[in-house]
Design a protein around this nucleic acid. Structure first.
Lengths: 249, 249
DNA sequence: ACAATCTGTGCAAAAACCTGCAAAAACTGC
DNA sequence: GCAGTTTTTGCAGGTTTTTGCACAGATTGT
């Protein structure tokens, strides 16, 4: 990895998470902490960030206006993203849906990961675009404004033409009895196509949605392979899903 | 391998992957690293890429990671965008390419405009997404990181299936004699497909590029209908294009 | 206060770079 | 066609940059 590239990544991380730790950057990028420190120092001199003991902070954090446009339950989603990111290995083809959890997953991907991501979600694509070693394939079609994902016959047909290793879905409702449900007709079709195309399906959800139901049926529990929540794997809430044969992280 | 050919290959690699390493290029093309270094140096002087220790980076990476950096000649581009926006009427189907000028156009669209935009440029799509009355159709395919636009056979085929009223292209080089030229093989194909599909083609460019030439031919002047620059329509620089039958704004 | 962590400095090895040079290739004018 | 010139390329050398490590001093939290 080039020095400039590394520094660009650090700036990106700072802007994204408002803070970075020297130690975690060091292990992420796989260089010594000394190098990270030297990078932070240079970037601080250029005014790109603010260096503090143990890492660096973004300039925005020092601003008076700390906008509370926080994503709902963002902390939980970060935990989910970190767990899910570990499932992706170098060289994989990964299909992802939309939603804030998927965006968090995109942000949590390690720098050195070299994989191909297929998606129709514009916010997710924007995140993938920033990762140096990730190839992006955009699924085209009409853009649904509220979900910010492409939907329609074209998108469905294109998804069918792939055979990705993994598929990540952020889901709105899951229930041991009724399986996965949703409330948007187009998005339901998309999710079904994605599940059918993929070798393994991973569902991401915050625990709050673990026993909820929406009007449209997406698929039964049998069709999903892995469920990721912010809870620890032995939480009693997850037992019904383990009983259904789903691996729980 | 010819020198020009080699340099074109390097530029293409940079456009595609956002970075190149001197060492890997050297073994790929089978020339010494010194030669690669000299190439990178020349290309950097021409502004085609950014040379760094160990290789080179694309300009796009810098734009992405340092968003504070001003878009080149942004004031001129805002003027161009304002003029171009007037061409779009309610109900139209509009095909747009990529580039900062197109993004400015997207920002300059009036709120009440209700039209359908078709594009493969991610930054442009992000802008369209924010407009309440605009429908967006995304052209899918592999994402070229440098130009942040989808390129490939799929994108070309999809463009051919539309018959939009207008097509807006941000162009890198135009010349009264050689017409429109560019430097990225994939983008050239895209532009050609867009021009052929559309009923009318509108080219946006800052005056600085009015008499410049790039290595790959896109189309002749006869194929474009309207040229928009930041200059006033009676500027002598624009006379050759008016003589060629192009409407100038 | 003390232990753990983080920081700055100096140093050494590796990698990348620059300069000058010479051979080979391409071009030029005759 | 051919001698002379220019361009291109690889190589040898010496220089600079980058990076990891060691160690001593500073900072932090309990």
């Amino acid at each position: 990895m080039l020095k400039k590239e590394r520094q660009a990544y650090i700036v990106h991380q700072v802007n994204l998470h408002n803070k970075v730790l020297s130690a975690s950057l060091s292990s992420e990028i796989d260089v010594s902490e000394d190098t990270i420190r030297r990078d932070l120092q240079e970037l601080a001199e250029e005014g790109k960030l603010i260096k503090v003991h143990g890492g660096a902070l973004s300039h925005a954090l020092h601003d008076i206006t700390y906008p509370s446009k926080k994503v709902y339950a963002q902390d939980s989603k970060k935990i989910i993203a970190a767990k899910a990111a570990k499932l992706i290995k170098d060289g994989m083809f990964v299909l992802t849906g939309g939603g804030t959890t998927i965006v968090e997953l995109a942000r949590a991907l390690p720098v050195q990961l070299s994989a191909t991501f297929i998606s129709g979600s514009i916010p997710a694509i924007v995140e993938y675009m920033h990762h140096p070693n990730i190839e992006v394939i955009v699924i085209g079609d009409k853009l649904s404004k509220n979900s910010r994902i492409t939907v329609g016959a074209d998108a469905l047909a294109r998804i069918k033409s792939f055979k990705p290793d993994l598929c990540f879905l952020g889901i709105n409702a899951i229930d041991p009895e009724h399986g996965i449900t949703d409330n948007d007709w187009d998005v339901v079709h998309l999710k079904q196509a994605m599940i059918n195309a993929s070798q393994k399906t991973v569902c991401l959800t915050i625990s709050e949605k673990l026993k909820s139901i929406q009007p449209i049926h997406v698929c039964d529990l049998g069709q999903i392979d892995i469920l990721v929540t912010e809870l620890s794997a032995d939480d009693p809430l997850l037992q019904p899903y383990k009983n259904a044969g789903i691996a729980v992280l």
